[in-house]
Amino acid sequence: MTQIGLEAALWRGKTMSELRFDGKVAIITGGGRGVGRIHALTLAARGAKVVVVDPGVALDGGSGASNAPASEVVAEIKAAGGEAVASFEKVNDRAGAARMVELALDSYGRLDILINNAGNSMPELFEEQTLEQFELLNEVHYLGTVYVTKAAWPHLVKAGNGRLVNTISEGPTGMHERGTGYGGAKAGVIGLTLSLAAEAKFHGVGVNGFAPRIATRLSAPDVLAHVYDRPAEDFVKNMAMFPSELSSPAAIYLAHESCTLNGVLLVSGGKQVMRMAIMENEGFRGEDMSVENIAAHIDQIIDMKDCIHVGIGAKVGMPVVKA
């Protein structure tokens, strides 16, 4: 047996200690359904007191409202012996964002964890996406994340080891069509996450991104059928491989005080967790920076085989290395 094989065998024989959240208070926006619901149930089962935020609106995020999603999750947590309260605020309402944080403080006296999970979806081709839809997508995804984080931030800092997990997406990478509105809004969340992480290191707060690969309302077969112009039944079997339960653990880990990551983006789902990052290569250097010389060296410029990660150090408290 190789040394690596021996170490693996020894590790399998060990019992990993459970990562608990006893005494911690967490807010989960969009916590009434999908992966947000699993976040809430898992944190509560591991000892956290949870504020489940969900206005119960429709998929577009701007119509309908129901107290049922958040209330049902809270009832489920309490039935299992946990502690939770429901909030029906909308993240894109500044006053509502402040109220959900106040609810956490009034109910439990502190705030340690914020998972910004609320989102909406209106997939359309760029020429068909209305400006009003662009605005609403940005209001919920980007500004909603800003509003709630702004209200929660002083308390995460006060906690001493607060954790902020922003739900991001692979959408901004241009993976599929009909994603300019959603992908653009989520790109804003990525930028906010990485930029805030650069400041968070001074406070011992961990700020990271979590991109779920899950089967929820935002990725239901009928939605994917519209995105890819294929029959909905083509996606039923595939999406069954991506339940929220296989994605949520990565976000829960990022929310734990033992996690020292900061400024890291994790993608998780379907029995896989990976890192997503912004990379740069060495590119081309030359005295003659003319249009023609760039054209002559374009293959070298776009070659990413020797690329390096761009951003802050990946650990909480790690200083920025400046050139």
Rank of each mutant, 00 (worst) to 15 (best):
M1W: 15
I4D: 12
G5P: 00
E7Q: 14
A8P: 12
L10I: 05
T15S: 13
S17E: 13
E18S: 05
R20F: 03
R20I: 00
D22M: 00
K24Y: 08
I28N: 12
G34M: 06
V35M: 05
V35L: 06
R37K: 13
I38D: 15
L43C: 10
R46K: 13
G47F: 09
V51R: 08
V51L: 10
D54W: 07
G56T: 05
G62W: 11
S63I: 05
N67M: 08
S71Q: 10
E83T: 13
A84F: 09
K90H: 14
D93F: 10
R94I: 02
A95K: 14
R99Q: 15
Y108A: 01
D112T: 01
I115S: 14
N117D: 14
M122A: 09
L131P: 06
F134K: 06
L136T: 08
N138C: 10
N138W: 10
Y142V: 03
G160I: 02
N161F: 03
G162F: 08
G162A: 07
G162K: 04
I168S: 04
G171D: 12
T173H: 12
G174K: 14
E177C: 13
R178E: 02
Y182W: 07
G183C: 03
G184I: 06
G184P: 12
A185F: 06
K186W: 03
I190C: 07
L192G: 05
T193A: 04
L196W: 09
E199L: 03
E199T: 00
H203Q: 02
V205L: 04
V205P: 03
G206Y: 05
G206T: 04
R217D: 10
L218C: 02
A220Y: 04
D222G: 01
D229G: 14
D229F: 13
A232G: 06
D234N: 08
D234A: 00
D234V: 00
F242A: 09
P243A: 04
L246G: 12
S247E: 02
S248M: 04
P249V: 00
A250T: 09
H256M: 01
C259M: 08
L265A: 06
L266V: 09
S268K: 06
S268N: 09
K271L: 04
V273E: 07
V273F: 14
E280K: 03
N281A: 15
G283P: 00
D288C: 15
E292P: 09
I298V: 11
D299Q: 07
I302K: 14
M304C: 08
M304H: 15
G313I: 02
G317Q: 02
